[in-house]
Simulated assay, not measured.
Amino acid sequence: MKAQSVYIHIPFCQQICHYCDFTKFFYNEKLATEYIEALANEINTQIGGTKNQVHTIFIGGGTPTALNLVQLRSLMQLIDTKFDIAAASEFSIEANPGDFDEEKAKLLKGFGVNRVSLGVQVFDDAMLEELGRLHKIKDVYRTVDLLKQHGFDNISLDLIYALPNQTVEHFRRTLDEALSFNLPHYSAYALQIEPKTVFYQRYNKGKLHRPPQEDEVRMYNILKESMKNNGLKHYEISNFAKPGYESRHNLVYWKNEHYYGFGAGAHGYLPGMRTGNIRPLPAYVKQAMEDGYPVLNTEEIRMKEMIEEEMFLGLRKMDGISNQHFIKKFGFSYELLYKDTLSYLRDKGWIMTDGDNLRLTDQGILFGNDVFAQFLLEEKDLSVVR
């Protein structure tokens, strides 16, 4: 089975952030070395011995740059052996400010990494500490300078807003400082209180206070306006880029296209099925070393699920969903299947048709989850197209 992109998960962090629910573990040198070996066995087992051609490669976490130089080189050599890096248009890695040194920057550049996504989150040292982050504002400046010195021009900066006790003006100041770097890509996400996190425990005890919802909406509107004023296109609900710098790997997800997922807790989407790997690190390593197949579950993707995902993933893009593309993929118009749903959402002012494309309105973006829920189907709903 082939996919056009690959995601590789590195679950190690020097410190666990208080809001994060991704698969992650405190960095341990011995365990990290074992993990790279297990990862190699998983990839070797599942995609064979020849170099695979993919359009995008993404190393995420956790914090991939938490690996030491030897481990990072082993990871890069593994990827270079199994994938044709030269044929990939985008090779991304996630990183924390402060994790980079000159040797790591040289190593990544030498192996063809051409995009770095920095988890900055907020420009406030006290708030960074409250989030459980290790870096300081000065580390952001040092890391961006270091990356530019080594030829990285495709740098993305990630922010979180609607943080505990954050005001609208505080977010505006963070945004202004972020934009002063004049980078080609920015991501900004509203804080989500996820189960099994420190913030979730504090929230349940009444010890964590989020800004009121109207302030969160104001922050989002300021975000959109500021990005536009700085020449960045709003191309996905939470993502902004200068022309040509859109995240090609993330667009694979939003276009509902296929990708490999390797590593602890990683998810893949292959023709006809989704896979989810074992999350606990010792269990992942054990299974990957035994048979190279550390998959916890597989889910068959039927026509019903493919259509649902096409709609609510596609509507995350500001360009929306092309009806002609939908017809080419499924053999019929989404108008035929969702006639009543589309009429309801248009009446609410949450969606609009722009030429061939169906997309969210500004109001619809604010109620995105409510919109997406409208596209869930019953099996009997498909009778109109069979």
Rank of each mutant, 00 (worst) to 15 (best):
K2R: 13
S5M: 10
H9E: 00
C13P: 00
C17H: 01
D21R: 09
T23A: 12
F25T: 14
Y27A: 11
K30P: 00
L31R: 14
T33N: 04
I36L: 07
N41P: 01
E42M: 10
E42Q: 14
I43N: 07
T45G: 00
I47F: 02
I47T: 09
K51E: 07
G61D: 04
G62S: 15
T63F: 07
T65Q: 03
N68C: 09
I79N: 00
F83W: 08
F83Q: 05
D84S: 12
F91R: 10
F91V: 15
S92M: 04
F100P: 00
F100V: 02
A105G: 06
L107A: 09
L108Q: 02
K109Y: 11
V113E: 00
V116I: 14
L118H: 04
Q121G: 08
V122C: 12
F123T: 06
E129R: 12
G132M: 03
L134T: 03
H135R: 02
I137T: 10
D145M: 10
D145H: 14
N154R: 14
N154K: 13
D158S: 11
Y161D: 00
A162F: 13
H170V: 03
T174G: 03
L179D: 02
A188G: 07
K205G: 06
K205L: 14
G206A: 10
L208F: 06
D215Q: 14
E216S: 08
S226N: 13
H234M: 05
I237S: 04
S238K: 01
F240Y: 15
A241N: 05
Y245R: 05
Y245W: 15
E246L: 12
E246W: 13
Y253L: 11
W254P: 02
N256A: 15
N256D: 14
E257H: 09
Y259G: 00
F262R: 10
G263W: 06
G265Q: 11
L270R: 03
P271R: 06
P280R: 14
L281D: 02
L281I: 15
P282L: 13
E290H: 14
G292H: 02
T298V: 11
I301K: 09
I301E: 07
R302S: 13
K304N: 07
M306E: 07
I307C: 04
K317W: 01
D319W: 08
S322H: 07
I327E: 05
T341Q: 09
L342G: 07
S343N: 11
Y344D: 13
L345W: 03
T353V: 15
T353W: 15
N357W: 04
R359N: 04
R359P: 00
T361G: 02
Q363T: 14
I365L: 12
V371H: 11
K380R: 12
K380W: 03
R386P: 00
